[in-house]
Design a protein around this nucleic acid. Structure first.
Lengths: 127, 127
DNA sequence: ATTAAATATGATAACAATTATCAGTTTATA
DNA sequence: TATAAACTGATAATTGTTATCATATTTAAT
């Protein structure tokens, strides 16, 4: 894999961003920053980086994929009301994985946990 | 929700099936069984049944959704080689949920865990 | 049984997210 | 600096899924 300027700015846009953006969102951000990047390039590089573990791809309840530059082990919560995605720190999973691997004989290389429900803010706004 | 013949045969096709089929797969099965069912009807009813808890929708690693008539709590493993989806029984999750709910204040309504890697069979075939 | 309202259907058009294509450009390497 | 490999922008194509709509089926009330 060669160096590429576009991959660099895509990663930066992802890392600078508080939320967990979609490919389209990153594309819009970069467009507004006067880059003449192509949407295909955004998809290509996000997938490439997700593939080799530089970033994480979040594919869960929704129709489109989201990305996360945080690669330390954590999970996600999607709010059904506002659609926001929150990080969920978690340390119980290693047990599950070990247990599962032993009982099934499967080689587990990755795993994802996606919770969904109503976030606190939306829950409070409800009444 | 009214009774419907089509929903009945869709559920049967799902329940009779060993694998975790996609909507398209169920459609093909029913087509070959001489039903003149429509693909839209398959999608409509799978989603409806998933919505009211009669079946489970698996949305995870792949590009398309899969369905499962097993509604007891369990998770899934997707083999990166053969693409098959396996059930993973699991009883640790309730702890995670309680913990997460307490620490975040989020109301968790559902969750999904998708493991991926290489299944035993593919692992053995590798050498 | 007959009717009327609600719900479901098949066929297909529309849609949104993503990927493939391809000619031209950039990067790494010899 | 020449060459091959990798990357890019523009956009066409693909894929999974949903919307539309005229017709048919189901349900409940007469």
């Amino acid at each position: 894999m060669n160096y590429s300027k576009q991959r660099e700015i895509i990663y930066q846009a992802l890392a600078d961003n508080v939320v967990h953006p979609s490919a389209e969102y990153i594309y819009d951000v970069l467009k507004q920053a006067n880059s003449n990047i192509s949407l295909a390039t955004v998809y290509r590089n996000l997938n490439k980086m997700a593939h080799n573990g530089k970033i994480k791809k979040i594919q869960g309840l929704e129709d489109k994929a989201h990305f996360d530059h945080n690669t330390f082990e954590h999970y996600h919560f999607i709010c059904k009301k506002c659609g926001r995605i929150f990080d969920i720190p978690c340390d119980i999973a290693p047990e599950i994985i070990k247990k599962t691997q032993e009982s099934t004989g499967f080689k587990i290389e990755s795993h994802d946990i996606v919770f969904s429900g109503i976030c606190r803010e939306c829950s409070e706004n409800e009444r």
